[in-house]
Design a protein around this nucleic acid. Structure first.
Lengths: 148, 148
DNA sequence: TTAAGTGCAAATTATTTGCAGTAAG
DNA sequence: CTTACTGCAAATAATTTGCACTTAA
């Protein structure tokens, strides 16, 4: 073990992943535990696409098919463990932080990060039209490299 | 002419469409004028998908291929005549209202409408991280049918 | 044992593109 | 005339699905 703080034993990360699954009543299969470990193993929030998570799992040496990555991300969302974020028409992003919060979308390399929720203050929101109610408000702050 | 107010002559609508194109320096081909007439012919803002606009053009009797609808919507966006809105991972929406304003997304039938910009008051926005600047802030208010 | 999960390859959906023909300036 | 536009059909890209096989409970 080269680094006691940042490099956790794989077993620890997998334990956390398994617990996370158990909390949602999901069957802890080898591939789900592996993906869960990659997603929340170090306790940090993460934003992934199916492709990026698939790449990460390949890198980590775990063998999980791309179809399973897709199915698993869907299952995690349905179980309330993750949230799907819509920012770019072409692909779907998934966030391990399920609280309601704004996002930064970096237009130059199309990646997503959390924006500090406490810095966003909405003083007034348009009211929902008759017969409808607000399900969710999505705020995406698109960023580009600063000029100069 | 059955209705002098709501039913405008096709020529009038097409004239408007042609002017709109001319204002952006786009060549007024038959298909562009037809699509433009459908989009802004009556002066109202409109939200379309490539498919919905294609369907509308078929209904109106104009013959425009789906590929051309896609290419034309892109061209209109590049020319600044329309704005692309990202709300649903699966398809792209296009808005004839190019001002910065929030949207209502009706989850039950996946359609989009404008939300009143004056009713949205953002008191504070997260500041852009070092080296980045805010290009745009997208606000999408997701609606579901009110319970009951 | 048995219902749920997995992996592959084929299917779908939204969108783009190559290219030959058509039309606008 | 000359370059941009159009339409078709084929190509892509992201994602889903059918189905035989595996595995957790």
């Amino acid at each position: 073990m080269r680094d006691g703080i940042t490099m956790q034993a794989t077993e620890t990360r997998q334990k956390r992943g398994a617990d996370w699954l158990a909390g949602a009543g999901l069957r802890p299969t080898r591939q789900r535990v592996a993906l869960a470990a990659l997603l929340i193993g170090d306790g940090k929030d993460r934003h992934v696409t199916a492709e990026s998570l698939y790449a990460a799992s390949c890198d980590s040496g775990e063998k999980v098919s791309l179809a399973t990555v897709y199915n698993t991300l869907r299952a995690f969302c349905e179980a309330g463990l993750m949230r799907e974020i819509t920012v770019d028409g072409s692909k779907s992003y998934f966030d391990t932080n399920t609280s309601n919060h704004p996002h930064f979308f970096w237009e130059d390399d199309a990646h997503l990060t959390d924006a500090p929720a406490e810095e966003l203050k909405i003083a007034q929101l348009p009211q929902a039209p008759e017969g409808a109610e607000i399900a969710k408000v999505d705020v995406v702050i698109r960023l580009r490299p600063a000029r100069g």
